Simulated assay, not measured.
Amino acid sequence: MTFTELARKEAARYWDGSFEHPFVQSLAAGKLAPEIFRYYLLQDRYYLEHFSKLYSLIAEQTEDQAVQAQLRENAENLKLGELAIREEFFSELAIGDKEILETAIAPTAYHYVSHMYRQLIDGTPNSAFAGMLPCAWLYQEIGVRLIEAGSPHPLYQRWIETYAGEAAAEGIKKERALLDRLYEESSKEEQQQMIEAFVISSKMEYAFWEMAVNLEKW
């Protein structure tokens, strides 16, 4: 069994929980409360800011040239795709600098980002890379699941479309192939670190939906 097959199996309950989560289901139905989506976007802004930085940091630490190239491509795609869409959302919802500064980072957003940075200290570049995959892969699967029916809410429909395209699927395919190879080349200890990083990130993805619907505060 490859790394991504094994890791996905280990994290299955959290992925299934994400697919059925009230946030995701309400978004698809067009019934997600505006204040919940707004809070999600504000927390996601913090998360994606660091997610982009992590791509660059991991690329600096790894010696694998194929991984370096993929991480830099991921960072550029994030800038041109998801981050650009988020800027449009912020503009349309009139989310400005004042609101951003006055909105405290929620515990889950803080812990998720901290978990990924920790891989660069206590783990390895490979485990750090593994911990990045659940976000993109899970969102891509959610996009594919939701795109056929779509959402009656224009903003939520655009959120779905961001992750349902062929480019996203191709990116995940390439990333999975790299991680599967890295796993095969790693020691047993590093393999376990990669699995643990992936599973924790999957848990945090589920917790991120919970954070949003509960408007989580410290």
Rank of each mutant, 00 (worst) to 15 (best):
A29P: 06
F51N: 10
S52C: 10
Y46R: 05
K79P: 01
Y40E: 09
D64M: 05
Y39R: 03
A33P: 02
Y39M: 02
F37A: 04
V67S: 14
A75G: 03
G30I: 04
S52D: 05
V67T: 15
E20N: 12
E49D: 09
E35A: 11
Q65N: 04
F19K: 01
Y39T: 03
P34V: 08
L48V: 09
A75Y: 00
L80H: 08
T62A: 12
A29T: 09
D64P: 05
G30W: 07
L27S: 03
Y55I: 03
L80F: 08
L57M: 14
R45E: 11
L71D: 08
G30V: 04
A29E: 11
D16A: 14
K79M: 13
L41I: 13
L54W: 04
F37N: 01
A33K: 14
L78I: 05
L41C: 14
L42C: 07
A28M: 01
V24A: 03
H50Q: 02
L48I: 06
Y40M: 10
K53F: 12
E49I: 07
D16Q: 15
L32D: 05
E60S: 12
A75Q: 01
Q70C: 10
H50P: 00
F23K: 04
N74V: 03
H50W: 00
R72N: 13
D16E: 15
E63H: 03
L71K: 06
L57W: 10
E49A: 10
L57P: 06
L42S: 06
